[in-house]
Design a protein around this nucleic acid. Sequence first.
DNA 1: GCCAACGTTGGC
DNA 2: GCCAACGTTGGC
Length: 163
Amino acid sequence: MPNYWLFKSEPDVFSIQDLAAQPGRRTTWEGVRNYQARNFLRDDVRKGDGVLFYHSRSEPMCIAGTAEVVKAGYPDHFAWEAGHPYFDEASTESSPVWYMVDIRLQKSFSTPVTRRDLEKRPITQGMMVLRKGSRLSIQPVTEAEWNAVLELAAALENSHTKN
DNA sequence: GCCAACGTTGGC
DNA sequence: GCCAACGTTGGC
Protein backbone atom coordinates (compact mmCIF):
# COMPACT_ATOMS: atom_id res chain seq x y z
CA MET A 1 0.00 0.00 0.00
CA PRO A 2 1.92 3.03 -1.22
CA ASN A 3 1.86 6.48 0.25
CA TYR A 4 1.54 9.64 -1.76
CA TRP A 5 3.55 12.83 -1.67
CA LEU A 6 3.93 16.21 -3.26
CA PHE A 7 7.49 17.36 -4.02
CA LYS A 8 8.04 21.04 -4.75
CA SER A 9 10.59 22.31 -7.18
CA GLU A 10 11.24 25.66 -8.77
CA PRO A 11 11.35 24.88 -12.49
CA ASP A 12 14.07 27.49 -12.99
CA VAL A 13 16.21 25.24 -10.77
CA PHE A 14 14.93 21.78 -11.68
CA SER A 15 11.80 21.21 -13.77
CA ILE A 16 9.90 18.11 -14.80
CA GLN A 17 11.47 18.59 -18.24
CA ASP A 18 14.86 18.40 -16.56
CA LEU A 19 13.76 15.17 -14.90
CA ALA A 20 12.62 13.78 -18.26
CA ALA A 21 16.08 14.53 -19.64
CA GLN A 22 17.95 12.61 -16.94
CA PRO A 23 19.38 9.16 -17.72
CA GLY A 24 16.60 6.67 -16.97
CA ARG A 25 14.33 9.70 -16.27
CA ARG A 26 15.58 9.33 -12.73
CA THR A 27 17.12 11.72 -10.22
CA THR A 28 18.36 12.08 -6.67
CA TRP A 29 16.29 14.44 -4.52
CA GLU A 30 18.88 16.07 -2.31
CA GLY A 31 19.19 19.41 -0.58
CA VAL A 32 16.10 19.29 1.61
CA ARG A 33 17.09 21.34 4.66
CA ASN A 34 13.95 21.47 6.75
CA TYR A 35 13.44 19.13 9.67
CA GLN A 36 9.80 18.29 9.06
CA ALA A 37 10.51 17.46 5.42
CA ARG A 38 13.64 15.58 6.51
CA ASN A 39 11.57 13.43 8.84
CA PHE A 40 9.25 12.46 5.99
CA LEU A 41 12.22 11.56 3.75
CA ARG A 42 13.96 9.60 6.48
CA ASP A 43 11.00 7.81 8.05
CA ASP A 44 8.01 7.69 5.73
CA VAL A 45 8.86 7.97 2.04
CA ARG A 46 9.15 4.44 0.72
CA LYS A 47 10.05 2.76 -2.53
CA GLY A 48 6.97 2.61 -4.73
CA ASP A 49 5.33 5.72 -3.28
CA GLY A 50 3.69 8.15 -5.68
CA VAL A 51 4.95 11.72 -6.10
CA LEU A 52 3.13 14.74 -7.48
CA PHE A 53 5.79 16.91 -9.11
CA TYR A 54 4.88 20.50 -8.28
CA HIS A 55 6.29 23.61 -9.96
CA SER A 56 6.48 26.52 -7.51
CA ARG A 57 7.37 30.15 -8.25
CA SER A 58 6.53 29.72 -11.91
CA GLU A 59 3.89 30.59 -14.43
CA PRO A 60 1.72 28.68 -14.06
CA MET A 61 2.20 27.19 -10.63
CA CYS A 62 1.07 23.63 -11.16
CA ILE A 63 1.37 19.93 -10.69
CA ALA A 64 3.42 19.12 -13.77
CA GLY A 65 3.30 15.34 -13.58
CA THR A 66 3.90 12.28 -11.45
CA ALA A 67 6.95 10.33 -10.34
CA GLU A 68 7.66 7.17 -8.40
CA VAL A 69 10.01 6.75 -5.48
CA VAL A 70 12.69 4.28 -6.60
CA LYS A 71 14.93 4.54 -3.54
CA ALA A 72 13.75 5.19 0.01
CA GLY A 73 15.41 7.65 2.38
CA TYR A 74 19.20 7.50 2.70
CA PRO A 75 21.74 10.02 4.02
CA ASP A 76 22.22 13.16 1.89
CA HIS A 77 25.95 12.84 1.17
CA PHE A 78 26.06 16.29 -0.41
CA ALA A 79 25.97 17.63 3.15
CA TRP A 80 29.42 16.10 3.65
CA GLU A 81 31.08 17.77 0.67
CA ALA A 82 32.99 20.84 1.84
CA GLY A 83 32.30 23.74 -0.48
CA HIS A 84 29.12 22.21 -1.89
CA PRO A 85 26.04 24.45 -1.69
CA TYR A 86 24.34 21.77 0.43
CA PHE A 87 27.30 21.33 2.77
CA ASP A 88 26.41 21.26 6.46
CA GLU A 89 29.15 20.67 9.00
CA ALA A 90 26.58 19.36 11.48
CA SER A 91 26.03 16.29 9.31
CA THR A 92 28.58 13.48 9.28
CA GLU A 93 28.76 10.01 7.76
CA SER A 94 28.50 8.38 11.17
CA SER A 95 25.68 10.69 12.24
CA PRO A 96 23.83 12.07 9.21
CA VAL A 97 21.40 14.93 9.70
CA TRP A 98 19.87 15.22 6.23
CA TYR A 99 18.23 12.63 4.00
CA MET A 100 17.40 12.25 0.34
CA VAL A 101 15.46 9.85 -1.90
CA ASP A 102 15.56 8.91 -5.59
CA ILE A 103 12.58 9.32 -7.90
CA ARG A 104 11.77 8.35 -11.49
CA LEU A 105 9.42 10.20 -13.82
CA GLN A 106 6.12 8.45 -14.37
CA LYS A 107 4.12 10.89 -16.44
CA SER A 108 4.61 14.45 -17.53
CA PHE A 109 1.10 15.90 -17.88
CA SER A 110 0.40 17.22 -21.38
CA THR A 111 -1.75 19.85 -19.65
CA PRO A 112 -0.45 20.69 -16.16
CA VAL A 113 -2.91 20.84 -13.26
CA THR A 114 -2.72 24.44 -12.08
CA ARG A 115 -3.50 25.86 -8.65
CA ARG A 116 -6.66 27.33 -10.15
CA ASP A 117 -7.70 23.84 -11.24
CA LEU A 118 -7.01 22.45 -7.77
CA GLU A 119 -9.04 25.22 -6.13
CA LYS A 120 -12.11 24.30 -8.19
CA ARG A 121 -12.56 20.74 -6.96
CA PRO A 122 -13.88 19.84 -3.51
CA ILE A 123 -11.23 17.22 -2.80
CA THR A 124 -8.18 18.94 -4.21
CA GLN A 125 -9.09 22.32 -2.73
CA GLY A 126 -8.19 20.92 0.70
CA MET A 127 -4.62 20.06 -0.31
CA MET A 128 -1.81 21.31 1.90
CA VAL A 129 -0.07 22.99 -1.02
CA LEU A 130 -2.95 25.45 -1.38
CA ARG A 131 -2.72 26.64 2.21
CA LYS A 132 -1.42 30.16 2.58
CA GLY A 133 2.18 30.18 3.68
CA SER A 134 2.62 26.47 3.05
CA ARG A 135 6.38 26.21 2.70
CA LEU A 136 6.91 22.53 3.32
CA SER A 137 8.74 21.13 0.28
CA ILE A 138 7.79 17.49 0.95
CA GLN A 139 4.08 17.19 1.69
CA PRO A 140 1.90 14.16 2.35
CA VAL A 141 -1.02 13.67 -0.05
CA THR A 142 -4.06 11.52 0.70
CA GLU A 143 -5.11 8.74 -1.63
CA ALA A 144 -8.32 10.66 -2.38
CA GLU A 145 -6.28 13.74 -3.32
CA TRP A 146 -3.92 11.67 -5.45
CA ASN A 147 -6.82 10.10 -7.34
CA ALA A 148 -8.56 13.45 -7.74
CA VAL A 149 -5.42 15.03 -9.21
CA LEU A 150 -5.01 12.17 -11.69
CA GLU A 151 -8.68 12.50 -12.68
CA LEU A 152 -8.24 16.22 -13.16
CA ALA A 153 -5.16 15.64 -15.29
CA ALA A 154 -7.01 13.10 -17.42
CA ALA A 155 -9.97 15.44 -17.87
CA LEU A 156 -7.69 18.31 -18.88
CA GLU A 157 -5.86 16.06 -21.32
CA ASN A 158 -9.15 14.99 -22.93
CA SER A 159 -10.50 18.51 -23.32
CA HIS A 160 -7.15 19.54 -24.74
CA THR A 161 -7.19 16.71 -27.27
CA LYS A 162 -10.75 17.45 -28.42
CA ASN A 163 -10.04 21.13 -29.06
C1' DG B 1 9.39 43.05 -7.42
C1' DC B 2 6.66 42.98 -3.26
C1' DC B 3 5.57 41.28 0.98
C1' DA B 4 3.34 37.91 4.24
C1' DA B 5 4.38 33.71 6.36
C1' DC B 6 7.45 30.80 8.11
C1' DG B 7 11.77 28.45 10.20
C1' DT B 8 16.05 29.36 12.33
C1' DT B 9 19.37 31.86 15.02
C1' DG B 10 21.25 34.05 18.84
C1' DG B 11 21.24 37.40 22.69
C1' DC B 12 19.51 37.66 27.00
C1' DG C 1 13.28 29.24 27.43
C1' DC C 2 11.78 33.43 25.37
C1' DC C 3 11.41 36.23 21.47
C1' DA C 4 13.22 39.72 18.21
C1' DA C 5 15.90 39.76 14.18
C1' DC C 6 16.98 37.73 10.18
C1' DG C 7 16.95 34.99 5.86
C1' DT C 8 14.14 32.35 2.80
C1' DT C 9 10.05 30.77 0.49
C1' DG C 10 6.47 31.36 -2.53
C1' DG C 11 2.00 33.37 -4.18
C1' DC C 12 0.61 37.30 -6.30
